[in-house]
């Protein structure tokens, strides 16, 4: 077992008191560099689990531990660092990428926010990241609405990777894409995970996509998480 990166411990979430809980005592430990696939029926709480793991929602019971420390106990600086090291790409990039920013601005923003390169080296880093995800220099000035779904998803991925994360959460991030773009992005992500020791939590309906990307699998149904031993 590799060193533990993120752990959901006995996490409980219910949106309404009279409804059955969405997460009912969920237990999941993601080790450094581990790739996890998460599937389960629609409305089964997969995205809620993602939001809890990202610290965007506080569990009603249980806790989330990052390198063994509870998120609730992090100070401002540590919390900022956590939000850099755990990144997410959601299903629909048009819904959350700032529409007025160009591709290069979208990718440069996290570099500036987290002071990741010196100011004069940032344009070079942006170009590297664009190349890594397969965007061409001519697209640097395009804004999200001028890109296709696949291109926009690449920009979202580059923006997440700019943070040099330890864990990348993909919530149905390949679902709306055409066959060619899906295959390209799976290959790209496999390469990155191997090279950079990046851990993955890949949420998807499609078990075949999960098997292409992940070594570990879990299924969330009825609020319970079941680990598949593969």
């Amino acid at each position: 077992m590799s060193e533990e990166l993120l752990r959901l411990a006995e996490v409980f979430m219910a949106y309404h008191t009279q409804d059955p809980p969405v997460l009912d005592g969920v237990e999941l430990a993601i080790g450094l560099g581990q790739t996890w696939g998460l599937s389960g029926p629609s409305g089964g709480g997969k995205s809620t689990l993602a939001r809890v793991a990202l610290g965007l929602e506080r569990p009603q019971a249980g806790e989330v531990l990052f390198h063994g420390r509870s998120l609730a106990g992090l100070n401002r600086r540590e919390r900022r660092e956590f939000h850099r090291r755990v990144q997410v790409v959601w299903q629909d990039p048009y819904l959350y990428l700032p529409p007025q920013r160009s591709v290069q601005e979208l990718i440069a923003e996290p570099l500036a926010v987290h002071r990741l390169e010196t100011r004069d080296r940032r344009p070079g880093r942006v170009a590297e990241l664009m190349e890594l995800v397969g965007l061409v220099p001519a697209q640097a000035l395009a804004k999200p609405h001028q890109l296709s779904g696949g291109q926009c998803q690449r920009a979202a991925l580059a923006r997440a990777l700019a943070c040099e994360p330890e864990l990348l959460i993909l919530d149905e991030a390949l679902a709306g894409l055409d066959t060619i773009n899906q295959a390209r992005l799976v290959k790209l992500l496999r390469g990155i995970c191997q090279r950079e020791k990046l851990a993955l939590l890949f949420i998807a309906h499609d078990p075949r996509l999960i098997r292409l990307l992940c070594r570990h699998e879990a299924v969330l149904a009825g609020g319970r998480l079941r680990l598949e031993l593969g």
Binding site: T179, A183, L212
Partner: peptide
């Protein structure tokens, strides 16, 4: 061609 290739990859035929 590239559609069929991508399909084969996603189906796990040429991993």
């Amino acid at each position: 061609h590239s559609l069929v290739e991508s399909l084969a990859f996603l189906e796990g035929a040429h991993v």
